[in-house]
Nucleic acid binder design. Sequence first.
DNA 1: GTCACCATCTGAACGGTGTCAACATGATCT
DNA 2: AGATCATGTTGACACCGTTCAGATGGTGAC
Lengths: 209, 209
Amino acid sequence: MRETGSAQARPYHHGDLSRALVDAARRILEAEGPAALSLRAVAREAGVSPAAPYHHFRDKTELLEAVAHGGWEALSEAICEARRTAPDPREALTSIGLAYVNFARNNPALYRLMYDTTRDRTGMPEHAKEQDSGYSQVQGALIEAGADPADVGELELATIASWCAVHGLAEMSNFKDFQPLKEAMGGEEAFLRAILRHFGTFSPRPRPH
Amino acid sequence: MRETGSAQARPYHHGDLSRALVDAARRILEAEGPAALSLRAVAREAGVSPAAPYHHFRDKTELLEAVAHGGWEALSEAICEARRTAPDPREALTSIGLAYVNFARNNPALYRLMYDTTRDRTGMPEHAKEQDSGYSQVQGALIEAGADPADVGELELATIASWCAVHGLAEMSNFKDFQPLKEAMGGEEAFLRAILRHFGTFSPRPRPH
DNA sequence: GTCACCATCTGAACGGTGTCAACATGATCT
DNA sequence: AGATCATGTTGACACCGTTCAGATGGTGAC
């Protein structure tokens, strides 16, 4: 067993082709859009024959699954860093929200793929595991912002509500219908902060009772 | 000009093929999923040759555009009816939210198509027009629920925030990760109502100042 | 070493797809 | 009637996902 190189060992002929394929797919996805993301194009980009991917992924959908998985990891990391670098625990939730939306706006095709439930033959997606890190970060930030950690049911609902709201904002934030309002508010971030402020779970506890 | 039949006139050879194609596409979309939605399959379902659609739509994407357009109309109608039949103006917003989520859950593939911004060569989608009806309904319901109609900027933000939040909930509501929580809460609708309650704009005015 | 084994890659092939050009059809207008 | 033009068909092309038989080359047993 030779030592692992700077990146990864080259196990066989090509050298870590599965990762190369996933990288190529992600590159094509963001550069040319999901319509151009053909398995053959991915193989071409990776410099292998059209049949080579089938030794690493059962299907095209399994490759897409791997791409989406990488997306969830990157998103979780972005959330963690946003929380870590937040100036104030009360601001952590907003920082996370902004980082989340920015991730979606910087990788729109990847983000859409991550939430595509039509692929995966095994029924519903297993986002729980991938989300887990990000999800628990949001939960922690909610508690630091004043949520009651004892009321687990309510905390769960607040976390889900936050996630849903930010997901919706992430997918709609670049609708051009919002453009005039954004400009009137003096910039993208001001607009996003204002919307986030309207999400109940992002305001410091209006808990009625 | 012979009289219009029970459904629609048959203007030329086939008789209102564009509508037949859109209907066939929508049928295939919901019955077999977006992967099975090929232009040839649509033509097959409508009983015409694979090239026939090109006399009514420039592209496959233009046909999908028409399908999505029909979806926006149906969604607007669902919103209008939800508001009309709401028992209490204060409950109207929640009724709209539930109807919205139910629409998305009953037509998941169509709903996903409606928010797909990768098709349409002309840049960003023109959802404004299609949303308009539903959008203004939400705005009206917000005012009836206590929003200040004079503060147009804040009203716009509240409307957008509501729409984003409900959109996120609609796309995530059938994640299987939520299943245990749903059951613990005693049903789907209780879960949805609880999430909606956490969306700030859905609670009667916690307006701080 | 040599040899078998097996993961990995290639080449060619199949049916299906989006799209186009050339042609057929038939309703409508004069 | 004949011309016109929207509508529909046929056949073709390149590309796609997928499979299968065979080439390639590293690994371990002897």
